[in-house]
Design a binder for these strands. Structure first.
Length: 574
RNA sequence: GCCCCCAUAGCUCAACGGAUAGAGCAUCUGUCUUCUAAACAGAAUAUAGAGGUUCGAUUCCUCUUGGGGGUACCA
């Protein structure tokens, strides 16, 4: 690697001149390509040896050798700027990409390590909306990134299929459902169930006693009352089928499903044992509580007075179950920022109960999704459902495609519009920094222009168009001569292509898919600039043409790999 | 009340403590007989306020102001 070579050269000179072993030699990109290809800033080194940065830069640069790879060294104030041999760089990078193909950018960071990513975790009382979508997409992209970094990743989903919110939907259906079914109403199951959940919300305003009835229903469920269980099973299946259909539409898969109805009692035993050991205590009314030993966190009840379990009881049990079953190195919870305090409490409890793996639990937070009309609340119907949005996007994409290709076959139209719709939606959501709240703008989310998923897909399609027309007889991975690539845009592309492995590695380490998303935009913009300035097929010489074909084919590979990590499918034609 | 997060262009977002703060939308102006105009080129506009740390702060610290979230024997 050229960058590593440079770093080693610098390290050597620093050692020789100042007798310092500097582990951190960081090379940056100069703000302008005219300044150089890589840059070393001498500030921190200057501080260590108590000299002015300018002096250090000057002195170091005089000791550095120019060779076949480093062609020029220019000092600008405290910066040492390096120019490297582009032909060598092109050859190394492009051949590497051609050889590795789909594996270009893969790293071994997590080799031998096992990590679980729990995400999505929907309730079975309504369809998934935009808030879930962000969670789904982050969880999926993160899992992809970690897999690409060599981790063994287990994607898990905890289905919240029990509790008062489920009982509410059940009660409404029992009272006003008239034995309708999703089939009879020609509705997706989760939407069908969601309607009854909302209906409950409406009716309970007129008649507050309905809440007591729902409570009773939940108690009957807990007593395993036959009729109640049957009703629950029925609604639950409908809702779950709807949820699964959405995952299929999104192309998201899970390795392990946990159902709250099956594990909600787990954790009880752990707590009773902890009580015996004196790790927690019983209150006068019988409730079991733990002192979190921290003023900010306070105290937390672990089991109700009647020793039935509450939500955290099951999360304690589930955490243990995960580590017992999978011997995890890391357990990541993808959960919104509104649950920061809750997960802090959970992890603290696990630590206080002296589970050795407590420190390996990690909460990956992200900001909420806001609509222009304000906060999303399923109960009030102020939501944008995922399926609905995808349908809208698909229709828009179809209109776009038809305006370009009126005679396209129905099947192809369907296929393409789905990829484009999902590409737009996924990229729109994933490009936000996690800690940022997402202000969902309907118009921008359905846009296919500018910084969007379809822009990336379009660029990929453009490249495929050229490659298909090129019909080159020389296999691209055998092209050897890149000395003809001299344009600024070509070199810009080279730099970006060689950066990809670092970007992926960092995005994985920092659990930050947005970083990859922004990199891909940068690469794509750079390509389109090149596209408008340089012709590939009409290049002035065969040498340039062949070299450019390899270059753009490499861009396509990197783009495809990057999109794949974000869960977005490229298109050969648009 | 207490705790946490956020504040960058008219709008939505970028920017390992480093060189001239970048994109996209919207607005205005150009570019399709030439590899797909879902594109490209150009114009214009920004770090909420006050201190501090630092050779250097959009980035770190404190306060102020303005948004959001949390503070259950709910899930």
């Amino acid at each position: 690697m050229l960058k590593q070579y440079l770093i080693n050269q610098i390290k050597q000179v620093i050692k020789q001149e100042y007798h310092l072993l500097s582990r951190e030699v960081i090379l940056t990109n100069p703000p302008d390509a005219q300044l150089g290809d890589w840059s070393f800033a001498c500030f921190s080194l200057a501080k260590k040896i108590k000299q002015s940065p300018d002096k250090v830069a000057q002195h170091l640069s005089e000791q550095l050798q120019i060779d076949k790879i480093i062609t020029k060294i220019v000092v600008v104030g405290p910066y040492i700027n390096f120019f490297v041999n582009k032909t060598v760089w092109f050859k190394y990078t492009l051949r590497l990409i051609q050889q590795k193909g789909k594996d270009y950018g893969r790293n071994q960071q997590g080799l031998g390590k096992r990590v679980m990513v729990e995400f999505s975790s929907p309730n079975t009382n309504k369809p998934q909306h935009l808030g879930h979508l962000r969670n789904d997409l982050i969880g999926d992209a993160l899992s992809n990134l970690l897999t690409f970094s060599g981790y063994q990743v287990i994607r898990s989903n905890l289905i919240n299929d029990r509790g008062i919110h489920i009982a509410k939907a059940m009660l409404a259906y029992q009272k006003w459902g008239e034995n309708k079914t999703p089939t009879s109403e020609k509705m997706k199951g989760d939407y069908f169930v969601g309607d009854y959940y909302r209906l409950f919300g409406k009716k309970v305003k007129e008649n507050p006693h309905l809440l007591d009835e729902a409570q009773d229903l939940l108690k009957k469920w807990e007593r395993r009352d036959n009729q109640t269980i049957a009703l629950w099973q029925k609604l639950n299946d409908w809702a779950l089928n709807g949820l699964i259909a959405t995952y299929q539409e999104l192309g998201i898969k899970f390795d392990r499903w946990y159902f709250e109805s099956e594990i909600y009692q787990s954790g009880k035993k752990i707590i009773l044992q902890a009580l015996k050991k004196g790790l927690c205590y019983q209150q006068a009314d019988g409730a079991i509580e733990i002192d979190l030993g921290d003023e900010k966190l306070g105290k937390k009840v672990l089991l109700r007075a009647d020793h039935t379990s509450i939500y955290i009881t099951q999360d304690i049990g589930l955490a243990k179950l995960k580590f017992d079953q999978y011997n995890l190195d890391k357990s990541i919870y993808v959960v919104g920022s509104e649950q920061i305090y809750y997960l802090q409490v959970l992890f603290k409890i696990l630590k206080l109960l002296s589970f050795p793996w407590a420190e390996q639990c990690y909460h990956l937070t992200y900001g909420m999704v806001n609509l222009p009309s304000g906060k999303m609340k399923s109960r009030e119907g102020n939501v944008v459902e995922i399926d609905t949005l995808i349908q809208e996007l698909k229709q828009l994409a179809q209109a776009e495609i038809l305006s370009r290709e009126p005679n396209i076959s129905g099947e192809e139209l369907n296929k393409r519009s789905k990829k484009i719709a999902l590409g737009a939606l996924k990229f729109y959501v994933l490009k936000f920094t996690l800690s940022q709240e997402v202000n969902f703008k309907p118009k921008e989310s359905i846009s296919f222009e500018g910084n969007t998923g379809p822009y990336l897909q379009y660029t990929y399609a453009r490249i495929q168009g050229i490659l298909n027309k090129a019909k080159t007889d020389e296999p691209l991975d055998l092209v050897d001569d890149f000395s003809a690539l001299k344009e600024e845009t070509e070199i810009q592309l080279l730099k970006l292509l060689s950066q990809f492995p670092e970007v992926v590695k960092q995005a994985g380490e920092e659990y930050n898919p947005a970083q990859l998303a922004n990199y891909l935009l940068c690469l794509t913009q750079s390509f389109n600039k090149f596209y408008h300035q340089c012709s590939v097929l009409q290049a002035s010489t065969k040498q340039i043409r062949q070299a450019r074909l390899v270059l753009i084919s490499s861009v396509a590979i990197v783009l495809e790999n990057g999109l794949h990590l974000l869960g977005i499918k490229p298109l050969d034609q648009m």
